[in-house]
């Protein structure tokens, strides 16, 4: 039973890697290059998980979190924030806007799946 995951990152490399990893684990993945596109892609559809980068043009990941949380449809959708910042600041920021958890880069496929498991039933 695959999850439907939206991955948001301005870096195609990162999107490709996340996508590849998740697909390999049997999940369905949709991609977006920034917050704006993510919201557009999301529309009113439910997804099981959102994985987003923080630093992106047009709309950054934290704003995206907030936007998603403010939409009743996605109120309880787990959101994971991809971050290179290992300091608490970004994590706190994430938390304050409704992120469920975070994945600290560098990207590691195993770690990703582990964290996805952690927040998705």
């Amino acid at each position: 039973m695959g999850l439907k995951v939206l991955t948001v990152d301005d870096s195609k490399t990162m999107r490709d890697m996340v996508s590849f990893t998740l697909k390999g684990a049997g999940h369905n993945v949709i991609e977006a290059a920034d917050g704006c596109e993510a919201l557009r892609v999301l529309g009113g559809d439910r997804v099981d998980l959102v994985i987003t980068d923080v630093n992106m043009p047009n709309m950054d990941g934290l704003t995206l979190c907030k936007e998603i949380r403010s939409n009743p449809t996605h109120r309880l959708t787990p959101i994971l924030v991809l971050t290179t910042e290992s300091d608490g600041n970004k994590k706190n920021e994430g938390r304050s806007v409704g992120a469920t958890g975070w994945i600290v880069k560098p990207f590691n496929p195993e770690k990703l799946l582990q964290v996805v498991n952690k927040v998705c039933p």
């Binding site: 301005d10 870096s11 490399t13 990162m14 630093n55 992106m56 991809l82 290179t84 560098p106």
Partner: peptide
């Protein structure tokens, strides 16, 4: 520019 360096770093880490 920040995002550029950030993205470069992100991939490089992987």
């Amino acid at each position: 520019i920040f995002r550029v360096v950030h993205s470069v770093k992100g991939g490089a880490g992987a």
